[in-house]
Structures are given as structure tokens and as C-alpha cells.
Design a binder for these strands. Structure first.
Lengths: 329, 329
DNA sequence: TCTTGCAACTTACGCGCGTCACTTGCGCGC
DNA sequence: GCGCGCAAGTGACGCGCGTAAGTTGCAAGA
């Protein structure tokens, strides 16, 4: 019923040339001399027939596809990641590459992915467990871009976690806080990020010659916030680096319930620059990653990798995160 | 360097059979009699060689892939959608189908997608604009599942928007509210959902014989909340249906700043069942979609469609949304 | 007039796989 | 001893495309 697919053969017939010519024209093959007249004829025919080359055939013969897959672990997606993904997609677009996302979890191993798709590149976000990582590296993916949380891991540093932590701690210190706390997210899946950021806070504290941060678990539950606040108060903590803005906002609420004021009773800095943070009372200071920039860099790397250029392992500079100073510290 | 790809040919050689036999064994071809001994030999060889059939070749010869693509518009992703996506993926998995996500925006037309991938099915979430929709339908996708917001549109109803709105309004009415407001999200990309939900609220009001809802724009900005609250107060509104929990929580804050109490001064119901809502003060009543169930149904539909069974256009029953009564109404 | 050369094509092969149609081997009944 | 039937397995084609290698036609140089 849907009428057979339009193939290059049909276009060739319509344009009165051979299939090879069609292919040369449509792919701008460099080593072929093709007069403008036939080129136009072919283009014309392809357009009217609405010809679209079949991906699988293309891949089969070229040995590579135009698909880039980004592996997203099954964390709760924040607001930043989707923006990054969009930026990557727009960065890839002019080079004819399409971005697809694939969520991976422990239950559904990624291994079967190569059966389904032959990606030109894979962007791995966070680790998938040693076994999966290994099989990923051994697979015949054209290019594999690994994004890491810290400068300690190998790969391209996406969210410079240590730098983030440092900025948070330094911001608090700049406002006179000498005893610092860290609000650690309970969700185990976020531990990778959290470790890096906490490390940054630790380093900054050491450099500033103050005590290492006092870590408390905090989730969305107000009870956890209250407990943490009490613990910090008792040990004289005056400023807290929160893993992210959501947790920081939960602490805001906890402080309000405890009749405490921000930043006089406790200073706060978050991460992510959520819209809500700017409107909190008082406005929340935060370390903001720049999704546009991050996405752009990832896309550039992928394009370079796909084109066979050596990858290199430069780190993202701190241009991609910015401290947004507001009034919560 | 990476050493040539392992093909079915290699497996055949290793197992001492022909390539055809390998293919029959690995695909469990029904019309072939294959003794257990050779079957084992082939499996064994495939395993030790770590043979993975090349997707594109498979697709090319079978004419269909094992990839299901879900088109996600570029709204800000909430917390529900990712959960739905995960549920879809798990539902697809046992049938050998892999789920990939593709964000689409106005700038990057989906049309080129069929060049990159030959999906077994496409799940369309929301509309992409008339032109895109049309080209999507005309393409040779095996199966296209369209998800709609209201019973008015064609397709499978994913989030029963009208039903959602009704539940919200009825909940308020059950607690004595006779004059109802609606908090409309400013983000234009959410208008599709919002229209459906508001329609539900309208219907419920009509059925209950009370005034139609008084609509106010509310975003993340507290200023919008304050303005809306003032307007509702002035016109005697006592209960408000918020587009979602985030907006409801913003209204919470606004009410607190205005020294007003929930639900005595203004009752509130949200949608989505965000973790924060349960911990709000007082806990937020909300209409909760069930991501697991929704995902399961989508997956079932897709599997049926891919297997060539007629789709049907049954609507999702209200089992997929549940009113969670807490204390904010 | 006969090469030589180059632009403008075309022919034909291979990518890796599914699968149809066909062959082979072998036990069985007559 | 021979034809028959069926289990077990193979040969070969086609999917749609990129592209290397080959072919044709025609103008220019000798």
C-alpha cells in the first residue's frame, strides 16, 4: 500500500543517467567532473521524487553512519543536561550528524546497542560499570568520547567538578565563613558528581587553611534538611556548599522553619542555577555550568573524532562554569 | 588496528557449517530443523568469537530495524517523562526492541531522521507542526504511534489531560471550594498540555454548576505568583488548580510571603507528584500520572504495531492517573 | 590522419545479512 | 534393490548504496 520506496535507481531513471552518477552528484564526490547541467537534472529529479537514501544501505557500504549516540545514565535528569544535549545536537547538525539519546540502566545493558545501531560516535556520560565500559572500548565504534567528572578520571572533563567545589568554598570564604559544611545528595547515582565537587571543596579548605568540610546527607525530604542544619549548627558551621540548587532550596525551607536567617545564621551556595534559585528569598548564590558552551565543545570533539583527527584530552577550562554571586552567602 | 570485524562467515567457519545455518540458528528460524548438537556448536562459536551481527546489514536485508525512536519535543523535561521513557524501554526490551530518544526542535527538522535511522516504530509525543507531521506520516516508518493530550486529537491519549483537570477541580469542590482559579504556565511550549487540563477543569465546573475557572499566568517567578494570588483574592477565588506541582509550589511561597495560609486562605492542587510536594507545608494534593503504567502501555502498543497487528485507538483509562489527597485543599 | 588526453559518464563489485530454493544423506517399506 | 520422504544443510540472490576501475566521445596536438 505505501508504494515502494524511492531508490537511487528511480532518480537515475528520471534524470536519464546511471545510478553511479546520481550517487556522485548527491554526495559531491570530489574526484568526479560533473557539468552543472546534469548536476541540476539529478538534483531536480531527486527533489521531485523526494528521494531519501536508505540509511542502512549507506552505512553498510560506507562502513560508518551519521548517528551519534549519547549514553545517559538513569539519574534523575536535571535541567542542565537537557540543555547540554540540545546544544550538542545543534553543534552536530551542520556536519550532517544526528544526535540520539539512550538511557542506560543496570538492567538493560548497552552491549546490545551496537546490534541496533552503528554509531559514528558514542558519547559516554559517567561510567557504566567496568564490564560495560570495557566492552564499549573494544567495540568497533568509530569514536568514543568519554566524559568525566574529575580531572582524575580519564576522558574529557564535562562538568569540572573539582573546580565547581572550589568556587563554592571560595565564595563562602570570601564572605567570611571559616567553618564550612557540605550537603551531600543521598541518591547514590549522583555519587560520581558529588565526590568530585566535595573534593574541590576539600582542596579549597586546605588551601585557605580552614577545617575540612563537615559532610551531611540531604535529600528532598525536609527531615534530612533539619537534621543536617542541627548538626552543622552544633559544630559551628556557618556556611554550606550544597550539591545542587534543589538541595540548597530544601535547606532554605529547613532554615525558615527553624526560624533561622540566610545568610546570617547559615550561608548557602548551590550548583546549577535553577530558575527558582534566582527568585528565592534571599536569592541563591550558585555555580552555573554553561550548557551552550559545554554542548558546543562536546560537539566539536565528536566532529573532530569522527573525521579521524586525534582526540587529545584537553580539559574544559573554567570558562564553562561561573560563580553567580547573589545574596545567600 | 582494531582487527577486522567478526562476521557470520567467521562463525560459520569456526563451527564447520555454512553461513546460512549460522543465520538460521542465531535467529531461531522456525521452518528449519536443526539438531541440538549443531545448534550448540554454532552458539558456542558465536560466543567465543563474540559475534555481533551488523545492524545495518540486518536492516538492509530484513527491511526493518529493531530500533524504536521516541520524539521528544524540546520542552523542559519534567520528572515524569524520563520515568515514562525508562518504562517504555523496559517494556520494549523483552521483544528485542531498543529505545532511542530524539529531541526535536523547530530548528532541527526531524525529516532527516529517516536518513540516519530506519526505525521499526516512531513514537511521536505532541505535535511537531503540520508540515513535519505530514512528512512523518508519509514516510515509510513501520509503525507510528502518536500520543495526544486530549481525547479531541487523534492518537493514543498519553496523559489524559481532560481527566486530569476534572480530578483537580472535583477535588477542590469536594472540599467546599465554589470559586476556582487556574494557574496557567507561561511557557508556550506547554500550551498543548495546559489547554487539555484547563478544558477538564472547565467541564468539571460546568457539571458542578459553578463559575468557570479564572485563569492567571504563573511561571517560576514569584512576582507572577503574587500577581495571580492578588487577582484571585480580589475575585473571591478560594481554590486553585495549578498546571503542575512546580507552579503550585511557587504559589505556596507567594502565599507565605503574603501571610496567607493553605488551604484556609487558598486551596491548591498540582499535577505530577513531585517529591517536594509531599514534603511541603502543608503537603500538596496532586494528580499523579503513573509513569510505569503509561510506559507499559506505550511499549505494548509499539510491540503490537511492529508485529503488524492493527493499532486501534483505545484511550488510556483513568487508571493511569490518580488523585493523591493530601492537605493543601 | 592518427594518436593522446581528458571530461563525462557507466559497469560492476562488495558491504553483511536473511532467506528461498535446492541438494545431499539416509532409513524405510515394498 | 529401488524409489520415496524427510531431516539436515548448502548455494546463491537481493536488499540499496558507495566507489574503483573501465569505457566512450570528442577536441587538441603532432
Amino acid at each position: 500500500m505505501p508504494g515502494r520506496r524511492v531508490t537511487a535507481e528511480d532518480v537515475a531513471r528520471a534524470a536519464g543517467v546511471s545510478r553511479a552518477t546520481v550517487s556522485y552528484v548527491l554526495n559531491n564526490h570530489p574526484h568526479q567532473k560533473i557539468p552543472e547541467s546534469t548536476r541540476e537534472r539529478v538534483m531536480q529529479a531527486a527533489a521531485t521524487l523526494e528521494y531519501t537514501p536508505l540509511a542502512s544501505a549507506r552505512i553498510l557500504s560506507r562502513g560508518r553512519s551519521d548517528v551519534v549516540v549519547m549514553l545517559i545514565p538513569d539519574w534523575p535528569l536535571g535541567s542542565v543536561l537537557p540543555q547540554v544535549m540540545d546544544a550538542v545536537a545543534t553543534g552536530l547538525d551542520p556536519h550532517g550528524l544526528e544526535l540520539f539519546l539512550h538511557r542506560c540502566s543496570r538492567e538493560r545493558p548497552v552491549r546490545k546497542l551496537w546490534t541496533a545501531i552503528t554509531p559514528a560516535a558514542v558519547v559516554r556520560l559517567g561510567s557504566l560499570g567496568a564490564e560495560e565500559d570495557e566492552s564499549l572500548r573494544r567495540s568497533e565504534i568509530g569514536y568514543l568520547l568519554e566524559l568525566a567528572n574529575t580531572e582524575l578520571e580519564s576522558g574529557l572533563v564535562l562538568f569540572p567538578g573539582i573546580q565547581t567545589g572550589r568556587l563554592q568554598a571560595e565564595h563562602l570564604a570570601a564572605h567570611g565563613h571559616r567553618k564550612i559544611g557540605y550537603a551531600w545528595p543521598e541518591d547514590a547515582r549522583l555519587a560520581g558528581f558529588a565526590t568530585a565537587r566535595l573534593e574541590g571543596v576539600r582542596q579549597a579548605c586546605a588551601d585557605l587553611g580552614i577545617d575540612p568540610p563537615m559532610v551531611q546527607d540531604v535529600s528532598y525530604d525536609p527531615a534530612t534538611a533539619e537534621k543536617a542544619i542541627a548538626a552543622w549548627k552544633q559544630s559551628g558551621v556557618t556556611g554550606v556548599c550544597a550539591f545542587n540548587d534543589e538541595i540548597a532550596l530544601n535547606l532554605f525551607d529547613g532554615l525558615r522553619r527553624a526560624q533561622m536567617a540566610v545568610p546570617t545564621d547559615l550561608g548557602l551556595v548551590g550548583v546549577d542555577n535553577l530558575p527558582w534559585g534566582a527568585h528565592a528569598e534571599p536569592p541563591l548564590s550558585t555555580v552555573a555550568p554553561d550548557p551552550e558552551q559545554i554542548g558546543k565543545v562536546i560537539a566539536e570533539r565528536v566532529v573532530a573524532g569522527v573525521n579521524g583527527e586525534a582526540a587529545g584530552t584537553a580539559r574544559l577550562s573554567s570558562t564553562f562554569i561561573n560563580l553567580i554571586e547573589r545574596e545567600s552567602a
